[in-house]
Write a protein that binds this DNA or RNA. Sequence first.
DNA 1: CGACCATTTGATATGGATCAAGCGATGTGG
DNA 2: CCACATCGCTTGATCCATATCAAATGGTCG
Lengths: 222, 222
Amino acid sequence: MLARNQSALASLPPRKSGRLRPSNTSTPGILFDRMSEPTSYPANETIFRQGEPAEYFYAVKSGCVRTFSNHNGGRRIQAFYFPNEYFGLEAGEDHSVTAETVTASNIGLVKRAALVSRAARDTVAANLLLHVTTMELQHAQNLNVLLLKSAHERLVDFLRGIQRRCQGKDEIDLPMPRSDIADYLGLTIETVSRALTRLKNTSTISMLTSRRLILRSPIVPD
Amino acid sequence: MLARNQSALASLPPRKSGRLRPSNTSTPGILFDRMSEPTSYPANETIFRQGEPAEYFYAVKSGCVRTFSNHNGGRRIQAFYFPNEYFGLEAGEDHSVTAETVTASNIGLVKRAALVSRAARDTVAANLLLHVTTMELQHAQNLNVLLLKSAHERLVDFLRGIQRRCQGKDEIDLPMPRSDIADYLGLTIETVSRALTRLKNTSTISMLTSRRLILRSPIVPD
DNA sequence: CGACCATTTGATATGGATCAAGCGATGTGG
DNA sequence: CCACATCGCTTGATCCATATCAAATGGTCG
């Protein structure tokens, strides 16, 4: 790990250097909309670490974030977060995962304590908490389903998910390296690579570069 | 499936025939405590079906319940529920899984609509919703971790989980058949059986019967 | 240009699935 | 009460998808 000044940057409160983006709100944007401008992070920067107190709750404004935990000799990527998605909310006091940017990103923050105390009185804030937790639950359940499938199916599901959550266009951009995809799907980078070349050979996808793909819709299962 | 009168029984509202149990409450028992007496179900009885409107929210008072969805030619068991655990809460309007008793069970119910409408005003009810959703999230995340492990490790984790959630004693009772364990752990019954005999051969467990085990603590990983 | 990193490709090993059969317990009908 | 079917579980033999080990290729940056 090429730690620059990550630990300093991960400490709170983070520096403000981002440009204000006119946040195209999805459901519970309320709290973030009236927030201060988002913070900008370079690629591969630690946002918070597993075990640190969860003082903030985060919204991706641009870029891509991964959360992961270090297993026993292996990294398990729990989720990727794209613009208009939320992360860093914990049931307990501390972060159960580490969060890093994948690419350079703008990240909005709210103080967790403010949100939690508001939720004790305010049903709007309470609903936001419930909504975000429900989204996390659905994601975890989808991942459970995915992990029971073959490598080929996992890849297809993964690419479909990226496509849906990003532009929705046929041409997609994978912001993360193969190793991230492998750690997320519970595979090795070799298997990910082979599954991709197989999709390429069957004309299911085209590869402009290793990170830019065109999905020939509909992706044929197996 | 030896359907007796399951569809009739699954329809709402369910018959009352249980005895009142003095519910030894865990955290959010409030709503269930002031409820009517629990309903008793025989073993392998459908409580609700995937796709049905989610009119009730349930608490296991005694026995054991499984929830599952029918995949593509395979059944995926999402969770087992033991006494003092809650199930049947859905983010949407309909049940996303089917729930069945594993053994004869007593089940408490509350009307979902009452709970949800109360949550809109009442932060106590809102917190119950959040708490239960958070428990479900943690369960789903634990399952994600589990599914990345070897068959042997999955079995060990599973047995430990049963032990922790039931009596906490060394001798445990598996209420479910091997096929349920296999469907939950993403394995085949043969692999489950082999993993168990291996644990037996290494004296990690003793088998009184195929359903009653003694865990020699601590269970040695691999 | 050369070092480094990400990706691909090839050869082999292996854990778990699949196919098949046997075994013990439980229940049912003759 | 016994013969037999059924069901849940175990055990064995073989196959296959994916991991592992190894090496080549390509891209980026100093």
